[in-house]
Amino acid sequence: MIELYVKKPNELELRHNNSVPAPKGDEVKIQLVYGGICGSDLSVYKGKLPYAKYPVRAGHELVGVIVEKGEQASFKIGTRCVVLPNTFCGVCDQCQKGLTNICRNKKSLGVNIDGGFAQEFNISSKYVLAVPDDLPNKKAVLVEPLAVIVHAFKKVNVEKKMKVAVVGCGNEGMLAAALAHYLGAKVTAIDINQHKLDLVREIGDISVFLPHEIESLETFDVVFEAAGTKVSVESAVKLAKPGGAVVLIGLAQEANFPIVHIVRSEITIYGSIIYQFPDDYLQAIEYLRDPEFSVEQIVSKIFSITDYKEAYETAASGNAGKVILSFKEAEKL
């Protein structure tokens, strides 16, 4: 069996290990089909997450097939599924309030516990969700990152003809722009990278701008900040119109807020982290099943797991959309 590890910052290692043991209890064994490379995967790889542990098996955007199950697992063998990569204890005060996304004992696959970039892996079935037959794997691998955006959109009310800005056009920003466009909003996407803006433009009728091209007087009903930098957060607040809202998705360490402007303009600022499971996953699946929801352009390239170095380099280049690793040929290695 092969699996991809981040041995230490800036060092990837493709390991050949013995087969995964039989799942026990409520566990299922999943044979991975596709795994998406996310910004947090790159942060772990580059050593930028202080809470990451090494060595760690990478990967948390996963779609695969259940090939074996424990005696307490209710899934059928052969079920295609996606995975919740963030654990929750179910007993802390946050979990008791239904806020499992901010569980005090949360662990994250591919960050501080082993992830799913492996030919096969075991996981508790409570972190697994079946996907419908009409959702192809290439779209199903987007369920987890799209659920992040679904959760963020629940903070505000995005309606037809509303003016929505997305600051930062990484994978999450592109998904936010795509969803706002699908919901009928008038969408403007902003990024420092023209290549990313070109990708966003392919989604549909979305206006794209480099930061310096935005008129200083232009404001928006809702602004989604998805770049995660000090400058992008501060820009997002300035772009919100009086009575508007800013939803922070990116993970900037800090930013300076113009408090007088925020107060006098009654701007509401929301923080949004990951998702509620399974509700946000189920909503993401419904969006992805709709042919009118345009996301195909977001997937830039699918690499074989043997080309993991090139895949990570492409994802880290800043010039690509979603980069996916394929494990379909893993059994031949």
Rank of each mutant, 00 (worst) to 15 (best):
H16M: 11
H16R: 10
V20F: 06
P21A: 05
P23Q: 07
K24V: 15
D26A: 07
E27H: 02
V28N: 02
I30Q: 05
I30C: 04
Q31M: 10
V33G: 02
V33W: 10
I37R: 09
I37V: 09
G39F: 07
S40N: 11
V44D: 13
K46Y: 11
K46F: 07
G47K: 01
G47Y: 05
K48W: 10
K48C: 01
L49M: 15
P50E: 14
A52E: 13
K53T: 07
Y54K: 00
Y54R: 00
Y54G: 00
V56E: 13
R57T: 13
R57C: 14
A58P: 05
A58Y: 14
G59I: 12
H60W: 11
E61A: 00
G64I: 03
V65A: 09
I66P: 00
E68F: 02
A73F: 07
K76S: 12
K76C: 02
G78E: 10
T79H: 00
T79I: 04
P85F: 13
P85C: 10
C89M: 06
C89D: 15
C89P: 08
G90S: 05
G90K: 03
V91F: 15
Q94L: 07
Q94W: 07
C95E: 10
C95K: 05
K97A: 09
K97G: 01
K97D: 07
T100S: 06
T100V: 03
N101W: 10
C103R: 08
N105G: 06
K107Q: 15
S108V: 15
L109Q: 14
L109I: 00
G110N: 11
N112R: 13
N112F: 09
D114L: 02
G116C: 11
A118V: 08
Q119E: 15
F121G: 04
N122F: 02
N122Y: 04
I123F: 14
S124P: 05
S125T: 01
S125V: 01
Y127M: 03
V128P: 05
A130Y: 01
V131A: 04
P132G: 05
P132T: 03
